[in-house]
Structure formats: C-alpha cells, structure tokens
Amino acid sequence: MITLAGVCGGYGGLDILSAFELNVEPGTINCIIGPNGAGKSTVLKTVSGILRPRLGSIVVNGLDLVGKSPAEIVKFGVVQVPQRHGLFAGLTVRQNVMMGAYVARASKKRLDARYDELAGMFPIIGKRASHRAGGLSGGQRRMVEFARAMMLEPQVVLLDEPTLGLDPLSRGVIYESTRAMNEAGVTVLMVEQNVRFGLSLADTVTVMSAGRVVLTGTASEIERHPDLMGLFFGLAPETDQVAE
C-alpha cells in the first residue's frame, strides 16, 4: 500500500532522511516512533509532497508520488494532519472542514451531505459549525483537522503527533477517532512521541533514529524488545555509545 524505498532528502542541502525504508499494509495503522529530531515529521512531509526527496521512491497504491504536487497527492487520497498549525483561525469550523475538499470543489449538495456524515463521526463539527476555528481547544482542533482530512474519503491519512499537548481525556477521543477512521477503510501512518499511545493503536511500528529505520515489527514485538527504552534515550544499538 505505502512503500518508501531508499528515500533520502531533507531541507535544502542537508539530508535528514538517509535511505529510509517503510512498508505499510493496506487498512492497517502504522506508527513511527523515535527521539525528537529523528526525522519523523520529515517522513510525513515527504510523503505529502511538502518536501521533495533527493533520491528514492514513495509508492502508494501503485502510484509513485515523488515529484507530484501536494494538491495532486491530496487529490489522489493521501492527506496529512500536521503536527501544529493545521487550521485557519479566520475561517469557521465548517469552512475549515470544507477546505478539505478544496482540490475537488464538488457540488455543494454532495459536500453538505459528506459534512453531515462526518458530524456523526466527529460531533464537534456539528455542534460548533459556525464558530471560528481560532477559539477551539487543542483537542477540538484535532477533531476538526481529522474531519477535514476525511472530507474526500482518503485512502491514507498521515497523522503527525496527534496527541501532542493534549490531556488524557482528549487523548482517549483521539484514540477512538483514529480507530474509527481506520475502520472506515483508511490506512493510517502516524507519528507519536507518546510511545504507549502509539503502541496501543498501531498494528505495526517503525522505530527511527537519525533519519534511518532502526527497528520494525508488530506493536507487540516492539513492546517486548529489550533495546526499545535504550533507543529512547538516544542509545541506538548501531551508535558507538553502546560499545562501553
């Protein structure tokens, strides 16, 4: 479904990702974990077309996304919810969600129907439709971002640290919503700082450090892996520090 092979790239001259590899099966939830600055967000931005990789291929459902514009990628059904600043404060909740269909600009009737459907899944967009998005709490904003990502019935949703800065209650809502999106047929590729949360949701987990994959496996394999905690203190097995 999603295959990244030999992806190298970053911002400007410097490579952040070096020969990054990833495989996500259709209909599953994959979670990328790794220390701060490992390049997790960079992976997602490269898939969504915000960054263009220097080398490598990114194939989703048979189509190579490298070189495609973010708009073409959204149209193809791959949508990213960014780590921060996803919404437009000056637009209402409804307008924000509708912007998820910007690349299609379908008939108003169809979009209205889709909106009502999504309001069943994310009640906040029904209750606060005409509120300015700027006035929502962190958890509510996430729900609006999720709803917007779902507007065009995507194949893949990329979630960048969806629980960042949220209280436990909102984290629970994110958990349920991510499950619901997945059950609606969406393949989820997410990034999480909160390892417990990531492992509890994911089918497969990719552990990355310094722009490379260090471990991949099912969530339960990773959970029982002896090196995992070490990795989170920056002591990846392949680094020199382990030698002592």
Binding site: S69, V74, V79, P82, H85, F88, A89, G100
Partner: peptide
Amino acid sequence: TAASENPEGARLIG
C-alpha cells in the same frame, strides 16, 4: 484566507 494565515497548512490541503 488560508494561504495568508498559514501557508504550510494551506499547502497540505492543496
């Protein structure tokens, strides 16, 4: 409005 408030967020929705 989207592009003026939040250019990167705007790119993500095309």
